[in-house]
Simulated scan of single mutants.
Amino acid sequence: MSSVIPVPVDTVPASSPSRADVVKAYVALTKPRIIELLLVTTVPAMMLAARGIPSPWLVLTTLLGGTMAAGSANALNCVVDADIDAVMKRTSNRPLARHVVPTRNALVFGVVLGVLSFAWLWTTTNFLAAAMAVGAILFYVLVYTMILKRRTSQNIVWGGAAGCMPVVIGWSAVTGDVTWPALVMFGVIFFWTPPHFWALAMKFRDDYAAAGVPMLPVVATPQHVAKQIVVYSWVMVAWTLLLVPATGWVYAGFALLAGAWFLVFAHRLYRAVRRGNPGNPMTLFHLSNSYLTLVFVALAVDSALSLPVTGWPF
């Protein structure tokens, strides 16, 4: 792997950015598209935990706290990864790579968001939800970003656990504890993460190699990567069915149909790679977003149809 070329992250740009550009840059530090997907999984988890429709106020406060926590983790990730973001074409437009935001400001911004998320969740939900949000931030930044990402091809497997926390936080915000359905939902996202990110890394293998990040597609053959995607996809689909005892026929039906849909494309990529073709990993990557959304929306619909309304009014 090639070494990462140090980049002076605090270099002043040739022309000062406008105030609107600065605001956009701080928003970009939080990686809103990633946060959107995390929040899609939180609401269904809360509905299942409530055995009905939870208080709208509780949902809003949990989503706001979760947004701040995820934004904190992502902003701090940008600080640590500023050097490799500048090397990779896919991430070279991020604020620190373009020197729109000084490193110190981004660091303070990320820490403040994390503190606010803890205080907000503790005040509006409970201490367990707030503590797990902070734990997710620390795990993502210290364990994944600073240790695993640059040292092992299994980085996204274990590091992806941080992205599984929103469902557990949502569950605990409603119940004050963590029981088996929350852990099953955690597992669904845990096993979803490798196929999702490895498909992306197959497309941008050269980017990761140039940055010295040992993503699996950088250190393994395409055939091995595609096979691992198939293995994790099967485990993921099987894992979704563990929620059936806590749900109903709507969720069960959609979990099976969506799972079969995903497996068809995972195997299609594997067959193409085995024949020596690059296949189209980005198709699977985009499909993975749709798949996760569909499974959790089905969970929400199932909860709304099968369970009584609780927690109203605010």
Score class of each variant (00 low, 15 high):
296 F>W: 06
246 A>C: 11
68 M>W: 13
168 V>I: 15
207 D>A: 02
177 D>F: 10
169 I>R: 03
211 A>E: 01
241 L>D: 00
111 V>E: 12
266 A>Q: 06
233 S>M: 01
52 G>C: 10
36 E>A: 09
215 M>F: 11
263 L>W: 06
270 Y>F: 11
273 V>E: 02
191 F>E: 04
178 V>C: 12
100 V>H: 00
137 I>T: 05
78 C>W: 09
172 S>Y: 04
246 A>V: 07
137 I>C: 04
235 V>R: 00
200 L>I: 14
226 A>R: 12
75 A>Q: 02
32 P>D: 08
142 L>F: 12
267 H>E: 14
273 V>R: 07
128 L>C: 05
226 A>T: 11
80 V>L: 13
233 S>H: 12
190 F>I: 09
115 V>M: 12
59 V>Q: 09
39 L>C: 03
77 N>V: 09
145 T>N: 07
95 P>V: 05
20 A>Q: 13
280 N>L: 10
217 P>W: 05
22 V>K: 15
197 F>I: 06
89 K>N: 04
89 K>G: 08
127 F>W: 14
304 A>C: 04
78 C>F: 10
312 W>R: 08
128 L>D: 12
108 V>L: 15
261 W>H: 10
279 G>M: 06
83 D>A: 13
54 P>F: 07
222 P>R: 02
134 V>Y: 04
98 R>F: 01
70 A>T: 03
287 L>Y: 05
195 P>M: 03
279 G>C: 13
72 S>V: 10
115 V>K: 07
214 P>A: 07
210 A>I: 00
262 F>N: 02
65 G>I: 01
223 Q>A: 14
105 N>G: 12
244 V>S: 10
144 Y>W: 06
76 L>Y: 13
94 R>E: 09
39 L>M: 14
52 G>Q: 11
116 L>W: 01
42 T>I: 01
225 V>P: 06
14 A>S: 12
155 N>L: 10
36 E>P: 00
13 P>D: 05
9 V>H: 09
125 T>M: 01
305 L>I: 14
276 G>L: 04
232 Y>E: 08
175 T>H: 10
